[in-house]
Design a protein around this nucleic acid. Sequence first.
DNA 1: TAAAGATACCTCGATAATCGAGGGTTTGTG
DNA 2: CACAAACCCTCGATTATCGAGGTATCTTTA
Lengths: 115, 115
Amino acid sequence: MKLKKDVSKGSVTLMVLSVLEKQDLYGYQMIRYLEGLSYGVFQFNEGTLYPVLHALEKDGMVTSYWDAVEDSRMRKYYHITDKGIKLLNESKKEWEEYVGAVNAVLIGGALNAAT
Amino acid sequence: MKLKKDVSKGSVTLMVLSVLEKQDLYGYQMIRYLEGLSYGVFQFNEGTLYPVLHALEKDGMVTSYWDAVEDSRMRKYYHITDKGIKLLNESKKEWEEYVGAVNAVLIGGALNAAT
DNA sequence: TAAAGATACCTCGATAATCGAGGGTTTGTG
DNA sequence: CACAAACCCTCGATTATCGAGGTATCTTTA
């Protein structure tokens, strides 16, 4: 499969970028957040999320800053960049293409697929 | 992520089982076939497909037989079993759940997700 | 105030899905 | 006959994800 690898990594990346598009979040918060948004279907663990965030930052898709929003402890917030938004839009397109293709196979079955 | 691993493997498995549900196919044919059904989005290579087929056979999801359908060369055809059909149905459900969850995140964004 | 538990960050080794590159045989075509 | 395409296969490298572990802080409670 061609797309799989990208989409596979992309589906975590995709979701992270997607929520960051709307607001800055910190890692631990994102985990709970995505869990809720997906109705409990996804259960990220930190070992998955943090490396993804670091990779995104390294690639300039997000930036991070420490802040104590509620005046208590410091948290590392992530902010999406223009580059990140671009990637998000591309990833969304890929995701849709990927889903469409799988569904086409599932529906297509034995019959002719085209048109 | 929790489902990812299964769905990831599942998406190849899923598509294979799905086309086999309608008719018996041989490996090389499946590659072209899935490529067509997915409008060229997927480009399986043999190194991906054959191990999947062998694993499915080992697990009793498919059976195989050699046949020379058009009286020329021998081809190894795969046939889905009842067990395989069961797996197919479960995988379909998982796939839908997975897609639904990702889409919920993509749409949900910053707002409240639930109802 | 001391202990406990949740919050919050991180890394690293194991697992496993996929890919790419290879190897081999048979069939059809120029 | 040579070459391409059809057709089967394996194996090592890559990479995404997970699980487990490590550390520090903050809040609650006894």
